[in-house]
Design a protein around this nucleic acid. Structure first.
Lengths: 323, 323
DNA sequence: CTGAAAGCGCTTACAG
DNA sequence: CTGAAAGCGCTTACAG
């Protein structure tokens, strides 16, 4: 590790000397303790401002035996450029980062691909942070359950699951899937494909919303129209290409993400078909890119930034013992 | 701030007790100091492994009077979702994060929009980190110069500038602009537009590469074909729309980013024109999204992840006093 | 209401 | 080669 030194700014001891009190009193004044005289407190606060004093958060966290760091782990093979490139993750990250900063907490970004998240428990990601935010469940629901029983608090973005012992935050995937499908049904489409990996809990719920909408319109779901399209862009294109080559007939598709929808549009165009004339597409997430694509992509909106904030607030609640 | 506590793992004192030595010796053994007996060292290392001991980086950094944190600031109005969504930033972030992790350093992500970066000097971004990486120069070259004269080391991704007192890492923008333009010229295009804000140093260099290529092919640059297209997607589309509506004739465009190129393609399609038949487009960056768009986007490749690593290594060199 | 003191987990001159 | 000790900047029982 490198030899890094930083010129130290004014210290609490120095401020105490200036104020003619001890560190203890300054510390109490700064944390607005009721056990310090109001006048003393005001004087110290004024002095602190005047001398641009700021508590050294590192020392504070160290003293408090905490790290002041929250780790963020993006599931779904984060190393793959495709996934990191998905704007969904970036917007989520933005919301998390903003909220964490407001609470004076640092963000530690997990960067490695996570084949088995149980291994994380030995890593810096866990050892070096006060809590961990998982974005997505992948197919590791039981591992998440196991981890949640350890001492380190976690929160997870994803779907509700049976016997779920971890704190979860997530959108209403059933309704989302329902709305997307319903939109296509009302456009008169009847051969509606569902693109996505239903082994992922969130996608499974959207699929059930999809089936619910079909049922309401008297359309019988066709197993052959449930296509396991992966999130990763190149794989998505391969998968959709295969579908088109098979001449399976369909006139619309509900996609599991906007990036997947954009992949679908590009692939369909390459096959000489038009969107939405020949095949109508609905995305999911409402990323910025989708809003400005051509033609404008119809999508199911998730307020991703806000979701990021909720994840942080939930984690803080646990850390503060409010469950 | 919240009351966060973490169950402490085995401490250096405990390991010292087990080994029957003092903390000092353990510390030296772990840092591979030559001043400790090889046998003792081996014994301590084995014991450390056995008991899964890991040095508490927080305490270490605290003792070493450093934060162990590097801040990353993305210029260009990071708050705007459009910019955060630009895959260029994400890939750069990935490279930076990986390299930082290998050096046991944390990544602190600046999230606020940066109107004037001089204000950063009072903020957590500076106060709480050992160094700062700026991705992009914006139009704040002189502010960067000013900041670099402060005690906190910085490195900047961008273009070389006259009287540049900060450490810079960047691509060869002149050659990049030249290659992009040359490609179009060899396709027989002669009315080639340049899309980008030439007030940004990097873009200005690409523009000069563009002019150089034109000159070599005996094409006289047309001022009206230098269009100040912003990076931000919606603004890019507005700007290109305006150009198309003005009936300025052009048969190709060199774009300043792949996202800009995608915006251009979408806008051109909306005007009933075809790419590349009517107007050929070249992007810049080589983001994953471009690779899989339809039709595949021609672009100038920057190895963004690798660039991120170089930024980190450069910063570490400065921190280690190697300039 | 305030001070004196211990201690968070580490590193590193200084002795020996 | 190793130990004893000081100290990084803070917080918080414990006295008074």
């Amino acid at each position: 590790m490198s030899q890094i030194k930083t010129k130290a700014p004014i210290t609490m001891q120095e401020l105490a000397d200036i104020a003619g009190v001890t560190r203890g009193t300054v510390s109490r004044a700064l944390s607005d303790s009721p056990r310090v005289n109001e006048k003393t407190k005001a004087r110290i606060l004024a002095l602190a401002k005047k001398h641009k004093y700021r508590v050294n958060q590192k020392a504070r966290n160290f003293r408090l035996r905490r790290s002041g760091v929250v780790s963020v782990v993006f599931m779904l093979d984060i190393k793959s450029e495709q996934h990191m490139s998905d704007p969904f993750f970036l917007e989520m990250l933005g919301g998390i980062a903003d909220c964490l900063a407001e609470h004076d907490l640092d963000l530690f970004l997990a960067h490695a691909p996570i084949a088995n998240i149980l291994e994380l428990q030995e890593s810096r990601i866990f050892l070096n942070s006060d809590g961990v935010i998982f974005v997505g469940q992948g197919e590791q629901h039981s591992q998440l359950n196991a981890i949640s029983r350890a001492e380190k608090p976690i929160v997870v973005w994803g779907a509700p699951m049976p016997r779920q012992s971890y704190c979860r935050v997530g959108g209403d995937n059933i309704t989302g899937g329902y709305l997307a499908t319903n939109h296509l049904l009302e456009l008169g489409r009847r051969r509606i494909a569902f693109f996505g990996n239903v082994n992922l809990p969130e996608i499974a719920l959207r699929y059930s919303g999809y089936k619910k909408a079909l049922k309401e319109h008297g359309v019988k779901p066709d197993r052959h129209l449930q296509i396991e399209v992966p999130f990763e862009m190149q794989h998505a294109r391969d998968s959709i290409e295969e579908l088109l080559a098979s001449h399976t007939s369909f006139d619309a598709a509900v996609c599991s993400s906007d990036v997947m929808a954009l992949s679908a549009i590009a692939t369909i165009n390459e096959f000489g078909l038009r969107v939405p004339d020949d095949i109508a597409i609905v995305g999911y997430d409402d990323i910025g890119l989708a809003r400005y694509s051509s033609p404008t992509l119809t999508t199911v909106r998730q307020n991703i930034r806000w979701a990021g904030r909720v994840l942080v607030e939930s984690l803080l609640s646990i850390l503060n013992g409010q469950n």
